[in-house]
Every structure is written in structure tokens, then in C-alpha cells.
Write a protein that binds this DNA or RNA. Structure first.
Length: 566
RNA sequence: UGACCUAUGGUGUAAUUGGCAACACACUUGGUUUUGGUCCAAGCAUUCUAGGUUCGAGUCCUAGUAGGUCAACCA
């Protein structure tokens, strides 16, 4: 068995896989792969996180390694347990399993504190009494060097003493901080004596009021990686400039014979027609532009789930977009392709009429109701059949009829014959209008010989329409979602505007539709294809007597494309 | 004008590390079809620019250009 050797089924490797295979080949880290997904529990996960989750957990799966889930909870004022729970749920939904129990950076607060003390003792850290403003001022700018703090060379004992007092809550918030002693003139801003600890009186969601000081990201992340034995610490590109600091901190604590984690950065996901920053997503929720974190228009994992996307489609998508270091803007169409591909294979076909137009079949008996068999999924024989009621009066889609139809219009028009899916051929012979001249009803005749939709004499009809019996159907509320923003990159804004000005006012349309009776039994978690329209799923609020469906994504529509050209 | 990073079709990712630029999405055209869906077939690139090395360069060298990240007691 060569599970630890290479990914044989894939012909090309991304740059991270190449690094890993090289490390494995060289026998680094005892030939083990141990990665981690380190979210901060201060918001809901979005599809960008999904990319990272698929990357990290996927790497662990591929190389017979392990992947930790670690909550990076060093900022008690922003984090809470609600987010912890939603993050766990999202990862599980995607189908991944973390190594052992979920881990928390707060589990290591005591160890981190000890590391800090030893650094003070070694002369690599000091307690600084500059204010936030002074620190910023002394820091300099990217193009000009900074100045050293006046507290930089205070005696070690004094720093030790004050750090202890900081910890014990004897120092006011903002009055002191612990800083690493590195290089105030470094061209890398992050090396200009970065903060290691700040005083915070907030209650932490796990450690309560045990601590009055909390470590900063840079002094917590690499250390946590080290403590957990992480081999490859994969993060996004904006942390690239942090890497020298990551390595510097590691140098201060590393011991002989221990695994030294390596930080590797990749480009975060950008998806067209949406935003991906937690801050902006939070704003959309808080200002009520969407109904919540799991609004099906949100790029959050919970939103996407409610929208009807499948875990498999998310993983396919992650596979499709790949991993690299250059900035990208992924076409939303790729995500839609991934979900259509999955849903096409698994979704049960049903008929539903969104915008009904009544058709009376004049030569069909008045009170007769036939139950006709219909295939559940042509892509999956095992899905079987169900029966659909057919009657003298039916509804078809309003847009499936046209009075002055062009040649390319394969649907219903006066004098034209079409097939009603799984039912009969009908020919339209009369249009009924109201006083305003609007079409309110169609009269048609059917060919009794064409039962099931098969032509009795081999004659062809070009069009097949979906339909629902006007007598036997269910009403359903349908939520039709469109892209949340009108422009590809909502963050690109004109002067004086903000990203909210790019919101698509028509991103949600709610209508009432007639659906075939079998949909009355649909359950949350199921996926349907409403034939010729798109994929839909029952919303969380859907009930048997009050059906609600969310549109996941439309079917590809080459007729709409053709019609658009005029 | 500092440091670091990145440049391959409309989009994303490859190219056995110097040897016929490949795969997917999108788009176009045609075929099949009881979903204008699916499926099948075909088409779609001067590898950011300019020089150079080489029998041969997306890959190496030189000089540019463009984009991104970094100045939170956030992560």
C-alpha cells in the first residue's frame, strides 16, 4: 500500500501538493501530514472557507494525514459559541471529519503565557507603556522606518513584573502591552516590534474571566500549530507578509526533535456577483438586506445549503477552481455548473407551472380523471415512476403559448400541435381574451391515440410542454433567487458609493405556483427538478399544507438565449 | 517612491521542470432527444511587453509594465 506516497489518480498537482509530495519524499516530519482548518468563531463560514476546508481536509484525505479543526478564539469581544456551532455544522455538512476533538487556541492560553515569559527572560519581549496612538506613530510607514519605543530596553525583571500585573488585572486596558523585540527599521512592518499580548477585560466564551490578557494572532497561530504538531499551515495570501514573523516566533520556542510547521499561502476565492468579506456579510445581515446568515442568496455555506446546493457540488466546485497564488475572480457560472451536474443525476423530476394559463381540452370528457405514469428521473432508472392526474382542464406555462409565433418557437400557438409531457398531443384552436385583450384561456383538442405522449402514427411534434391538472394540484410558494449584486465585483465602487449600491433589487421574487400533487409529500433535504424550469428544494419553513420551494438554479435555457438575440 | 507576492484564452487551473500550450467552465455551430435539460461532436490562444541565451523558451537571463498584499491593542 502506498497511501502515503502520492496522489496517483490525478495527473497534475497544485503547488501545495507538490510541496507536500516533496516533503514526503525527503522524509520530513516523520513522513506525516498534519494540517488544520483554523476559523475564528466570529461569523458564519462562506464559500471561500469551503474552498479552504476542501483544500485542508482534502489534503489530509489524499495523503493519509489528519486535519484538525481549531477555533482561533483569541479575541473574546467578537467571538461566541453560536458561531462555533454553525462552523462545526457546516464542516460536517460538507462531509469532512476533523481529527480528534475540535481544538481551541484558548486551550493553549497557559502555554502561550509561559512562552511569553520565557521570551521576556530571554530579552526578546518587553512590556511597553505606549498608547495605541504612540505605537502607531512610532511604527513608521511602509516606506519609512519606525522608531524604538522608550520602554524597549527596560529591565527584564520590570517587564516580568508588569506582565504579571497585566495578567492579574492590575493594569488598565490599553495602558500596557507585551511586544516582541525585533527590528523597528525592518522593511516588513510586521517585524517592527509587534504586539504579543493586549489587555482585554471581555469575558471569553470558553475561559470566562480567567484571563485579563489575550494573545494576538501572530503570537498565537504559529504556536498553536507547533503545539498540535501541524506540518503544513495553509492560509490565504494576505498572511504572506506575516510569514517572517511566524518563523521568528517559532525560532523562539522550537525545541530539538519537534515538528516545525511551515506556513504556505494560497489565493482566496473571489466569486463574481457576490461579496466574501465577513464584515460585509455581517452588514448585509444586520441591515436587513437579506433575511439572515442562511438567506439563500448569501454566499455562506448555510445560505448555499438552504438554497439547495449539495455537499458534493461544493466539493466538485472546489476541485474545479483549483488552488494557486494568483488573484482570481471565479465565474458564478462554475458554481452553477457544479450543482446542475450533481442535481441532474439525483433530483426527482416533477411538473410545476409558475405562471399558469388555463387550457380547456374540449374533446376530453368533463369529469374524467386519468392517472398517467411519469418517469422520476431519466438519469436514474432506479428512481422509478409516479402517477400524475390528467383532466379536461389543465394549466400550462403562459410563456409556452404565443399568438404570432416565429418559426423557431416550438411551443403552442393556434393551429399548432405539441405534446403534453407523459400525457397527450394537443392542438390549440382558440384563444379566449378578456376585455383588456389579455389571454385568459386556451381551447384545444387532444388526440386520444397519443396517450403517454407517444405519437400514434409516427408524426413528430417539436415541442413538449409541462403542465398541471387544474383540478388536482397543490399550490406552492416559490422563492426565485437571482444574483445578490448587479455587478461582477461589487467591491469595485464609484466615488461616494458603497458596495450596497450594487445590490440587485430583484434578487428575490416570490410567486405562487401550481405543482403536481406528489410534491405535497416533499421533505426538507430533498431536491427536485421542475421539468423545463430548474432545480428546487423545499425551504426550511415548508409544510405539507403550506409548501415553499426555493429555486436552487435554473436549467440551461437555450431558447431564452435565442429569444434574447432579437 | 519600501518590502513581499503574482502575471498563460472571456473565466479558472495545467504543461512530465528547456521539447507539438492541455483540461474544465463559458461561448459558437451541428447531431440525438417525450425536458429548447442531459448526452455526443466540432470550433474558439502571437503564454503582459521588449531584448537576449539556445537546434528549441510559457519555462532560463536582462530591463520594463500591470495587478495584489502590508502602516488594527482584528484574524
Amino acid at each position: 500500500m502506498t497511501t502515503n506516497e502520492s496522489k496517483t489518480e490525478k495527473s497534475s498537482l497544485n503547488f501545495i501538493e507538490q510541496i507536500i509530495e516533496k516533503d514526503l519524499k525527503e522524509g520530513k516530519n516523520n513522513k506525516a501530514i498534519h494540517v488544520r482548518f483554523p476559523p475564528e468563531p466570529n461569523g458564519y463560514l462562506h464559500i471561500g472557507h469551503a474552498k479552504s476546508i476542501c483544500l485542508n481536509f482534502g489534503l489530509a484525505e489524499a495523503y493519509d494525514g489528519t486535519c484538525n479543526l481549531r477555533f482561533d478564539d483569541t479575541n473574546p469581544s467578537k467571538e461566541n459559541i453560536e458561531y462555533v456551532e454553525s462552523i462545526k455544522k457546516d464542516i460536517e455538512w460538507l462531509g469532512f471529519k476533523w481529527h480528534e476533538q475540535p481544538k481551541f487556541t484558548s486551550d493553549y492560553f497557559e502555554q502561550l503565557y509561559q512562552y511569553a515569559i520565557s521570551m521576556i527572560k530571554a530579552g526578546h519581549a518587553y512590556v511597553c507603556e505606549q498608547s495605541a496612538e504612540e505605537i502607531a506613530e512610532y511604527k513608521g510607514t511602509p516606506t519609512t522606518a519606525g522608531k524604538e519605543s522608550t520602554w524597549r530596553n527596560r529591565p527584564i525583571d520590570e517587564s516580568l513584573e508588569w506582565f504579571e500585573k497585566m495578567k492579574n488585572g492590575e493594569v488598565e486596558e490599553g495602558k500596557m502591552s507585551l511586544r516582541a523585540k525585533i527590528d523597528m527599521s525592518s522593511p516588513n512592518m510586521h517585524l517592527r516590534d509587534p504586539l504579543m499580548y493586549r489587555i482585554k477585560r471581555a469575558s471569553h466564551h470558553r475561559t470566562g474571566n480567567d484571563w485579563n490578557i489575550y494573545p494576538m494572532y501572530d503570537f498565537a497561530h504559529g504556536q498553536s500549530d507547533y503545539i498540535e504538531g501541524i506540518t503544513h499551515s495553509i492560509c490565504t495570501l494576505e498572511f504572506e507578509v506575516h510569514r517572517p514573523l511566524y518563523d521568528w516566533f517559532l525560532d523562539q520556542i522550537i525545541e530539538e526533535g519537534h515538528i516545525r510547521p511551515r506556513q504556505i499561502e494560497f489565493a482566496r476565492l473571489n466569486l463574481s456577483y457576490t461579496v466574501m468579506s465577513k464584515r460585509k456579510l455581517l452588514q448585509l445581515v444586520e441591515e436587513g438586506h437579506v433575511s439572515g446568515w442562511d438567506d439563500p442568496r448569501m454566499p455562506t455555506i448555510s445560505g448555499i445549503r438552504r438554497r439547495g446546493y449539495t455537499p458534493k457540488s461544493m466539493r466538485t466546485f472546489a476541485e474545479m477552481i483549483g488552488v494557486a497564488k494568483r488573484d482570481n475572480m471565479i465565474d458564478l457560472g462554475k458554481l452553477e455548473f457544479a450543482v446542475r451536474e450533481d442535481l441532474n443525476k439525483i433530483a426527482l423530476r416533477r411538473m410545476a407551472v409558475m405562471d399558469p394559463l388555463k387550457v380547456v381540452i374540449t374533446n376530453y370528457p368533463e369529469n374524467k380523471i386519468e392517472h398517467l405514469p411519469a418517469v422520476n428521473n431519466p438519469e436514474d432508472e432506479t428512481a422509478g415512476e409516479r402517477m400524475i392526474p390528467f383532466s379536461r382542464e389543465i394549466y400550462i406555462e403562459r410563456e409556452d403559448f404565443m399568438e404570432d409565433a416565429p418559426k423557431k418557437f416550438f411551443r403552442l400557438s393556434v393551429g399548432r400541435e405539441v405534446r403534453l409531457r407523459y400525457a397527450y398531443f394537443i392542438t390549440c384552436n382558440e384563444v379566449i381574451k378578456n376585455e383588456q385583450g389579455e389571454i385568459v384561456e386556451l381551447r384545444a383538442t387532444y388526440d386520444p391515440e397519443s396517450k403517454g405522449g407517444k405519437s400514434p402514427d409516427g408524426r413528430k411534434v417539436k415541442g413538449t410542454l409541462h403542465w398541471v391538472s387544474a383540478q388536482e394540484n397543490k399550490q406552492a410558494q416559490i422563492n426565485i433567487y437571482d444574483r445578490l449584486f448587479n455587478v461582477e465585483d461589487p467591491q469595485k465602487i464609484e466615488n461616494g458609493q458603497n458596495f450596497l449600491d450594487n445590490l440587485n433589487p430583484d434578487s428575490l421574487k416570490t410567486i405562487t405556483a401550481f405543482v403536481e400533487p406528489s410534491l405535497g409529500e416533499s421533505r426538507i433535504g430533498e431536491h427536485f427538478q421542475f421539468e423545463r424550469i430548474g432545480y428546487f428544494c423545499p425551504d426550511y419553513d415548508s409544510k405539507p399544507n403550506q409548501l415553499i420551494f426555493n429555486k436552487t438554479v435554473g436549467l440551461k435555457d437555450s431558447w431564452a438565449k435565442l429569444a434574447d438575440k432579437d
